[in-house]
Design a protein around this nucleic acid. Structure first.
Lengths: 225, 225
DNA sequence: AATCTTTTAATTGTCGACAATTTAAATTGT
DNA sequence: ACAATTTAAATTGTCGACAATTAAAAGATT
């Protein structure tokens, strides 16, 4: 929630954010046709700004536009999600390696405290805490991306892939048994960062993401090919 | 040239491509203000489609928009270019590793023939052949990305980073002395692909990109910090 | 009854005009 | 002459209406 800036500048920006939210949460089904007039009516604005919003969402690949045939919500099939996680592994691994040399001691300490918070949240609510799939989990990953000091990486991972990732979360049945392993892995990563061991941090992050992906495909190898 | 589809669908798409070309080639200077009315006039269209084009270009990060203050061409400073090459190293390395297991023998053979063509071109024109910075070089890299079979990777590397990379090329003074080393490295990469050695192919590609980056910063460590 | 053609409706693409905001210029005051 | 304030120009943001294209429905023909 803290990552995407809910800026309320132009109407196009507002529409873009509202649409992005609706798409990510599944409120707008995947593959659904997006009618310009209908959406403009619902958002209380003209079609101009809404079209600009659609063009922007097309840029960050949340919708797919076909000339003279309108825009549709993207469909996250198995292949797409698989590709997504493969890229995350490479990019977040790289972020981790860079973060090990770039993050300040204060930031690493702060990261550690973030994990403390997560641990308490899990213990309190006990059952429903599907940490591996939670939003807090994303915060952890994002903080490391910020620590890489690579702005282009922040863009790609933060603004674009992040949305698709959240979309995966909302369509995936959350399995709670990966809660403590994920937190444990996070702790190890922070430890590697504190020791300034970039190579180890990268490897741990890559394994962590691989584990998350395995967890996803294991918990739903019933549907789709 | 074969990568970006010069599709001529809606006016917004046309404007988007024309603007992208002007930006990449440096015809529109970095940081330059993009006046909507003026551009719409020049392209012979209304401001509506042009605004949509700007929104699209904002999505692929060729222009930077500020609400109520217009759009400007992005500026590729040292840090940005450095970040770009760091990401390329991670992503194209990954593409290479995947391509080693995914490309068909025919595709690898075709890649080898592409290098033969490049070699002849270099020998013919002799001097001006700054291969390391040429467009043909990009074709080689793109073919490997296609071979990775990761569509999201093709998107990121092909549509977005590719534009920024070409932009770097146009602003960088081309140095011809890196011609034969680059071709040589390409040959080694193809060899690794033919042997289905993904790890080696990745390492070779990473070094190749590192070399390209070093070549750039060495040939112009006069300007900017 | 099924298929092809024609007509109709719906949706997207485009333009021009107006409102709101920002930037530049001119004016005024010290 | 310099600074702050006010005024004017330019630019962006927004809307509504019309044209072009596509999708759907009605009708005709075998």
């Amino acid at each position: 929630m803290s990552i995407i800036t809910p800026k309320q500048g132009t109407l196009a920006d507002i529409a873009s954010h509202r649409l992005a939210h609706s798409i990510v949460t599944g409120e707008l089904a995947q593959g659904q046709k997006l009618n310009e007039a209908e959406l403009a009516e619902r958002f209380g604005m003209g079609r101009g700004p809404l079209r600009e919003a659609l063009r922007h969402l097309e840029g960050i690949h949340l919708v797919k536009r076909i000339p003279n045939a309108g825009a549709r919500v993207v469909v996250l099939d198995y292949k797409t999600r698989s590709d997504l996680y493969a890229i995350r592994e490479a990019l977040e691994g790289m972020a981790c390696r860079l973060a090990a040399t770039q993050m300040t001691p204060e930031e690493i300490e702060q990261l550690s405290r973030l994990l403390d918070t997560h641990e308490k949240q899990i213990q309190q609510q006990g059952n429903g805490g599907c940490y591996g799939q939670s939003e807090g989990n994303l915060d952890f990953h994002y903080q490391i991306v910020l620590g890489s000091r690579n702005e282009m990486l922040m863009r790609i991972l933060g603004s674009e892939q992040y949305q698709l990732l959240r979309m995966c979360r909302f369509q995936t049945s959350r399995n709670a048994q990966r809660t403590s392993p994920a937190l444990q892995q996070h702790r190890h990563i922070v430890e590697a960062l504190a020791q300034r061991d970039g190579e180890l941090a990268e490897m741990l992050m890559r394994r962590h993401i691989q584990g998350a992906w395995r967890s996803i495909i294991e918990s739903q190898y019933k549907e789709e090919a």
